[in-house]
């Protein structure tokens, strides 16, 4: 399963990579600090799952998700954020899940396993 990480903090890339490395089927194909490069990557590559921060320097995660829904209806979006107040906005962009930082390993794995089990059917 191909995964992309978008978070303006580099430390988060590291944490996510380490946690996701424990799941065999996951291949992290890209990690980005802002949405412009991420968007052009997603334009040209097949991706199954995107982990997406919300508060970022330029475009925020929700805005980006709205833009993405125009062209990439299929990709699953999981928000990873320190803020709880975007949860209902997340549903409006068809988020698959919403994880509050600090990311707990068990919570993240449940999400990933759920995606994998759906992909299998």
């Amino acid at each position: 399963m191909k995964v992309v990480i978008i978070d303006d903090e580099l430390a988060m890339h590291l944490i996510m990579r380490r946690m996701l490395a424990k799941v065999d089927e996951i291949e992290i194909v890209g990690s980005f600090q802002e949405t412009t490069t991420a968007y052009s990557y997603l334009e040209n590559h097949e991706v199954d799952l995107v982990f997406l921060d919300i508060r970022m320097q330029r475009e925020n995660g929700i805005e980006f998700a709205k833009r993405l829904r125009g062209s990439h209806r299929r990709v699953k979006l999981v928000f990873v954020t320190s803020y709880k107040e975007y949860a209902s906005a997340a549903f409006e962009v068809n988020a698959y899940d919403y994880i509050v930082k600090p990311v707990e390993q068990g919570r993240l794995h449940r999400t990933v396993l759920r995606v994998l089990s759906e992909a299998g059917t």
């Binding site: 549903f91 988020a95 899940d97």
Partner: peptide, 14 residues
């Protein structure tokens, strides 16, 4: 809406 994600809600309509 936040706890809804914890029980794998597919959507949340107000």
């Amino acid at each position: 809406s936040l706890p809804a994600f914890d029980v794998y809600a597919f959507d949340y309509i107000v």
